[in-house]
Amino acid sequence: MTILHTVNKSPFEDSSLESCLRCSKAGSTILLIEDGIYGATEGTIISDKVKAAMADRTVCALQPDVEARGMKDKIIEGIKLVDYAGFVDLATENDTVESWL
């Protein structure tokens, strides 16, 4: 089974990103949305953990949420930005979607 994990909370306020990183398998995709996109930014206290996960998982961030928050130039290299259509594609490509609320 393939899982698309979505995280919509800021990693500095809530442990959902860390739990997701801990409980996701190699080959799965993690999509950061809403305040979750702050987890995709460079130079934070959590960026090293995100980069480590990128070794065997695909990490994406929702572009409209990134742009709304002014973080476009701060995204960790290698994190793919997807639009709403891309979000839908990811949801259909995977067997299930796990939302870390």
């Binding site: 305040d35 702050y38 928050r69 002014g70 130039d73």
Partner: peptide, 14 residues
């Protein structure tokens, strides 16, 4: 996270 309120370059069109 309040510091994010006053970051530059916010564009909410999307």
């Amino acid at each position: 996270d309040g510091v994010y309120q006053i970051t530059k370059g916010q564009d909410t069109a999307g």
